[in-house]
Write a protein that binds this DNA or RNA. Structure first.
Lengths: 350, 350
DNA sequence: CTGAAAGCGCTAACAA
DNA sequence: TTGTTAGCGCTTTCAG
């Protein structure tokens, strides 16, 4: 239990040695040649007094704080935020670092975001993680460049900073392939209307995967709506509104779990049972939804925890000189999005 | 844009004054008598050089870091975590403080949680927020006592530390009253089985509110299950399984939104339309569920953001000597849980 | 094998 | 009105 009032000096006097010696044994300095007895004396004195180092003083002296700044755009607006933070926090802790978190609004001015980064810099964080709450391109405050930094879930508009993002395309492929593997041939896509990378990449992968399977990917039905439950509902109503049931898709790939939730309702209203009459795959793996729908929604998981951990790991490597971030900055690192299988996929009827 | 390599000394030479003067003008020290011209010189020199104070050095000298430690049990396991963090972060930022976050597992040993607090203490945080992710009694590491601290969403087992918790009872009352106001007389409660304060307090308030309305609160139907969707489903099936429809509750108060989600499904299976045949109120206001169910779920909101902000506000007051925390520690502060009205409540059929 | 002393960047008491 | 200087608690060079 580190006691605020006890310093290295107190330990030194208690152990009858100099502060140098205390510092050397407590930090296990490699080149220090100190007798085992002295070491013991020092250690037990420190223990006795409840000594804990003053990291501020250490940092001032060594120019290393062991702190990482995490500026997070819109913490808490999305449940994903927590996973990124958790991944970062655990990776940091494992390497002896701590996290300072600053929340910033995605819609905040570049200037106010610069001030947020400045606050971190004044505290002399060793590096900065900049996390956005959904995958997108982001314009970054210039002062970010003054310490090692890595982007989580976004790529810089300028493009010259190390970033880690989800494999949208691979995720979408996995989703569609699961549907194909179950025997589906008429598959629809319920897409988002936002102009973000995920929208385009998932659509592209959707069509490509169908085409590669010998189907007409270009002609497959796609309906776009806002990426909310009601949007999913509307889109599903439209996509399922074929006169002829033989024309109707037997499976739906949905942009995200919320839209899938809407599709569930549309299916219910149309008297379609999931998965017997209609198979559905989502995206995001928002537990609250995916695991709780009935039947459980098979969906593609976004690697938020992993991105947080990866970014932290590499940031620390860079800080410790084990990695060259400028090299990695050439292209973003892409982390895979695994399919989480639940109960919303089955073979099509006949 | 604070430049790491520029110190107060550089500003001093650039402005042709001493470091004292620089320190005085930049910190707007009250008793300093410095000519306006000098002030200007200093400020523009600082500006020019991109000077930013080294908060470490300041802190070392002043014994004030302006940092708050937030130890959070199970960030990210629940979406609520983010709201607490956000409330704390914004309140802190507004008063010039920053947050250091450490995640700790609720199931972690007392010792490992003590180490987490120690990490914060070594960094000389000015105070500590200890947040749990659901309202409960918690055993705290002893070293928490060495700086001002406040608990968020829990009360200490020992009971001698300032805490802020949700008004479970008031929330439950609001829920039941909304049902009564809509004209319901046969109201059931779907409760949780965990031995946490919310379970007991909500039940108690449920019965009391009915009784006060002239009904037989003691006889009102209550079914308990695990507080998940499937638990809610099971409990709802049981509670709605009356032979005689005249006996069946016309409204259900559910322990949380997830259980309410299960109740929705049970109702659908029984051919009951919400809210025409059955009114439902939840608890938690988990947006993802409550806003997305169809019809939207009326529910009681937990004041997570508010608790985070309140705790931070008062922690800072204590740090700055504006409040005496030991006084507030006498009993926990209770923040109200407002009813969020959506579309799941209607008058009972005749 | 161990210790003295300088200095990280800043604030504040004291002197001028 | 402004400057000198000690010292916050630590690490690390250099000397013994």
């Amino acid at each position: 239990m580190s006691n605020k009032n006890i310093g290295i000096k107190d330990v030194a006097t208690a152990a009858g040695v100099s502060v140098t010696t205390v510092s050397h044994v407590l930090n296990e300095v490699a080149y220090a040649r100190i007798s085992p007895e002295t070491r013991d004396k020092v250690r037990s004195a420190a223990e006795q007094l409840g000594y804990g180092p003053n990291r501020l003083a250490q940092a001032l002296r060594t120019q290393r704080t062991g702190m990482l700044g995490l500026v997070s755009e819109d913490i808490a607006t999305t449940p994903h935020a927590g996973r990124i933070i958790l991944g970062a926090e655990e990776a940091a802790k494992a390497r002896g670092y701590n996290l300072m978190i600053i929340n910033t609004s995605g819609s905040a001015s570049l200037e106010s975001r610069r001030d947020d980064v400045d606050a971190l810099l004044e505290r002399r964080v060793d590096g900065i993680l900049y996390a956005t709450m959904y995958h997108r391109n982001v314009e970054l405050p210039a002062n970010l460049g003054s310490v090692p930094a890595v982007l989580v879930d976004s790529v810089a508009a300028g493009g010259n900073i190390t970033a880690v993002i989800p494999d949208e395309e691979g995720g979408a492929r996995a989703a569609v392939e699961a549907l194909l593997a179950a025997g589906h041939r008429r598959i629809g896509f319920i897409n988002n209307t936002d102009d973000v990378p995920a929208t385009h990449q998932r659509l592209q992968a959707f069509r490509a995967t169908l085409t590669e399977a010998g189907l007409d990917g270009g002609a497959a039905p796609v309906e776009s709506e806002v990426s909310e439950v009601h949007g999913g509902y509307e889109a599903a109503r439209r996509i399922l509104a074929r006169e002829d049931r033989a024309d109707m898709p037997t499976a739906l790939f949905c942009y995200n779990d919320r839209m899938a939730m809407g599709a569930y309702r549309a299916a219910a209203e149309l008297g379609l049972t999931i998965p017997a009459d209609l198979s559905i795959v989502g995206f995001d793996d928002q537990e609250l939804i995916a695991a709780n729908l009935h039947p459980g929604l098979s969906t593609v998981a976004l690697p938020h925890y992993e991105m947080g951990a990866w970014a932290t790991e590499h940031l620390i490597d860079a800080i410790e000189g084990k990695t060259d971030l400028t090299l990695m900055a050439l292209h973003p690192t892409i982390l895979s999005c695994p399919l989480v299988t639940r109960d919303s996929i089955a073979a099509p009827r006949d």
